[in-house]
Design a protein around this nucleic acid. Structure first.
Length: 223
DNA sequence: CACCAGGCAAGTA
DNA sequence: TACTTGCATGGT
């Protein structure tokens, strides 16, 4: 069990350093809001590259809309999303999501997204197969509301620099960011995307810290 | 070959 | 509440 040993640096300055190094990321990678929702579910514990293949399949099958997703045969749906892994589970999760949309919002993302942020988040969390990260990805990237997304990259980014315990809860980590930053959707959007950009290159192991743009925020001996 | 990747729910104690 | 396990493909 690792303890938090380091003082939290100004998270705004950390953001500036990441932006300076990696540039704007233009997330979420998705053409439409529905596609972002689908991607958020499909990328659960799965490499994004594999999700892209699944999205391509759905588009080719003309299934990238609420009605088609909702009425598609489950075997077919599972086959389309097969490259994203856990395809039976995820087919069911997509179905749960579209069922909520159809039954409670007339199949309209607009109506779902007209809920106030907290209600929207609660409504998403009530869907079986949508947990805190998936819900927040949808709330932030598809509905464009200022909630901070915590994912495996964020967790690693924080624990690797000893800015938070690796075992810290989702809500705690989200609170750390939301307390230290202005509640700005554009900022939260870009910040999470930048943490992922960083994580693909650094923070994976103790080594590979050479050239990390965040070294200046660590004490001398740890750099 | 093993290990990992932008989680979540269900089961057990 | 706190662990553990199943789900599954594709890249390294």
């Amino acid at each position: 069990m690792s303890e938090v040993k380091q003082l939290l640096p100004p998270l705004r300055e950390v953001f500036d350093a990441l932006l300076g190094r990696f540039g704007p990321q233009h997330w979420w990678p998705g053409r439409t809001r529905l596609e972002m929702c689908v991607g958020a579910i499909l990328t659960q514990n799965t490499a994004w590259k594999n999700v892209e293949k699944a999205i391509v399949n759905l588009r080719a099958a003309r299934a990238l809309n609420v009605r088609a997703l909702h009425s598609a045969d489950m075997k077919m749906l599972a086959q389309w999303i097969r490259p994203a892994g856990y395809f039976n589970v995820k087919a069911q999760r997509l179905r749960e999501f579209t069922t909520m949309l159809v039954d409670d919002f007339g199949g309209s993302l607009d109506k779902l997204f007209s809920l106030p942020t907290e209600k929207l988040r609660e409504r998403l969390l009530a869907v079986k197969g949508i947990g805190p990260e998936t819900a927040d990805c949808i709330v932030l990237y598809a509905a464009r509301r200022p909630v901070f997304v915590i994912d495996a990259y964020t967790r690693r980014f924080m624990s690797r620099h000893d800015w938070a315990a690796h075992a810290a809860s989702y809500d705690h980590l989200a609170k750390v960011f939301e307390a230290a930053l202005p509640r700005d959707e554009t900022l939260f959007n870009e910040y999470h995307a930048l943490i992922v950009a960083l994580g693909k290159e650094f923070c994976r192991t103790k080594a590979r810290c050479d050239g990390c743009p965040l070294r200046k925020f660590l004490p001398e001996k740890q750099r």
